[in-house]
Design a protein around this nucleic acid. Structure first.
Lengths: 338, 338
DNA sequence: CTGTTAGCGCCTTCAT
DNA sequence: ATGAAGGCGCTAACAG
């Protein structure tokens, strides 16, 4: 179980470990002959470089820590996919930590990453997080950090997200174009910028199209099928009922669809529905779900790009960067009255 | 950016680093007074233990490397969820590597993990992997390794999976009970044990119920919506057409459903369909998809348990372990004729 | 072109 | 109960 080190190679060849190290990393001042024999011997002895030692020495681990709320949602899986592949291409590994949507675990994750001396941290904020000091702390320590999707603008931390405002605006616009004119909104937790931006987009779109903007038409949900169902139930108790709804994400929209179906309301004829996220299932349900695509893989790649640049630049002259990806409207059956 | 070390704490208190180290790890021979002041100082100086140094010294990283084919499939996300949470509870972190279903990347992942000196490796084999020597290599190096879901029995490596044989058997049985009697199968790549076991279960179920076992009724697919569509097209060109089909996984089943719908074949009245995996969308499509649940989170937890035990035991007296979880039949509309 | 030396931060004997 | 010293494996500075 004893592993081969550069010392073993050095002993074998009667040279020093330093030479071996240099030969293996193709140092220009090493003769090609030495390089050749060192590499051959390394292969023969089945040497594998100890990155832990190398990291201790160099101060770099080549590891990016990624905090996601949960791996059970394909949205994050898909972003991870993007991050991971971009990281691989650039010689980085990816350490994953799940916050399970809890602030406490999120803090633990940050701690774990700091102790592991990751070169940078990418995070998507948990639903339950109200206090953001752990993120500020990372920043103060000059450890590169950036947010993806769920971010907070007040911390001076860069982020990648899609233009949530515009996504919601486009969603409303899509419904308006189909002739719906009393449009409700089912929201997520508003202390997360991502979600409050969507509400803002919704409101502005209503105003832009001179439609009623009624506080009763905004349901404060929590990102779940159940929240979609509850919202519909509530909306249909109103005197002045809506004839369409935008949901903060697809599962919420799915809940709405299911409730509407049980209530015997025809979608899209009597009532329009549009989601957000472009989750896989939306294409395959009936009626298929119109939605806003979030460019998840691209988001992952951009997130890596952001952190990669933060890692390789002087922390001094870095300003906060905000990458905003364009949302893509996907029109399917649930919003298509015509 | 210079980080605080135990030496800084030692200097501050006029004691030695050794004492600080011991105090921080609650060594029994350190006075409680010293412990107290050391911990206070650590907190005050904002000390964070350097795991890289500690790993180099101890030879343990407390990191589990996990190789998945892709994070874009919720099945793996869900298993990761299970692994990750179990790992967290036991003081481990999780490093993720995506093979993207390619043998070459899989080998790279193994290399990266070995170099990173992970304490153990969990892997689910890529579709394209034909040569398994990289796994044997890990085993020969006495690095703990175990498979989950997609495994190979010939390498002497432990694994967790569900009872694929039984899952497929139950799927056929479910169709038989509904009165279908010419049942086809859409398979995945057969060099992966997981998939060949399902075919075996299918065949044995047919035999057990005295149904025709026709080679033409087994379509060699590749795990994709397209493969489901192609299989149906092919089946419907046969003289003696099937009246039901089991698919190797849900997306394949989805493809089958879509093709059947386009062909105007009624499911489940004229034709029964059952999938495998219990992917999220199955519940929400129309007709909803009957399927076999694979207990993904439990699988993740068991996988961690397996590797955890491998890590903590003497490699000498370890024998190959095979954990088999019970599949769960989920009966929905697509298989329910009655 | 290669060797010598030293140290990254931590932990673990051995000594006191 | 604490100190002293060495080393995990690698690399960079300095020397020759």
């Amino acid at each position: 179980m004893k592993r081969v080190t550069i010392n073993d190679i050095a002993r074998e060849l009667n040279i020093t470990a330093a030479t071996v190290s240099r030969a293996l990393s193709d140092h220009p001042e090493i003769s090609s002959g030495t390089k050749k024999i060192v590499k051959e011997t390394a292969l023969r002895l089945d040497y594998s470089p100890n990155k832990v030692a190398s990291s201790l020495r160099s101060g770099k681990t080549n590891i990016i820590g990624v905090i996601i709320p949960t791996a059970e949602h394909i949205f994050f899986g898909s972003v991870i996919h993007g991050i991971s592949n971009a990281a691989s291409k650039n010689g980085y590994e990816v350490l994953i930590y799940q916050s399970n949507e809890s602030e406490q675990f999120e803090k633990k994750g940050i701690d774990a990453f700091i102790n592991a001396r990751v070169d940078g941290i990418l995070a998507s904020i948990a639903k339950d997080t109200k206090d953001f000091s752990h993120f500020s702390y990372v920043k103060e320590k000059n450890i590169p950090i950036a947010f993806f999707d769920r971010f907070n603008d007040n911390l001076g931390i860069s982020s990648v997200c899609i233009d949530d405002y515009r996504g919601a605006f486009l969603a409303v616009e899509t419904l308006v174009n189909e002739g719906y004119n009393r449009i409700a909104y089912i929201s997520g937790p508003l202390h997360i910028k991502t979600f409050s931006e969507r509400v803002r987009g919704y409101k502005d779109a209503l105003e832009h199209y001179n439609l009623d903007s009624d506080p009763e038409l905004i349901y404060p949900g929590d990102i779940s099928i159940e929240s979609g169902r509850k919202a519909i139930k509530k909306f249909f108790k109103l005197d002045n009922k809506p004839d369409a709804v935008c949901a903060v994400e697809d599962f919420t929209a799915l809940g709405a669809l299911k409730e509407l179906k049980e209530m015997g309301v025809n979608v899209p004829e009597e009532f329009g529905v549009i989601g957000f996220c472009n989750d896989l299932f939306g294409e395959h349900i009936s009626p298929s779900l119109s939605t806003v695509d979030q460019q998840t893989v691209a988001m992952g790649e951009e997130a890596f790009d952001l952190i990669n640049k933060l890692i390789n630049n002087e922390p001094a002259n870095q300003r906060v960067h905000k990458k905003v990806l364009e949302p893509l409207i996907i029109i399917r059956e649930s919003s298509k009255r015509t």
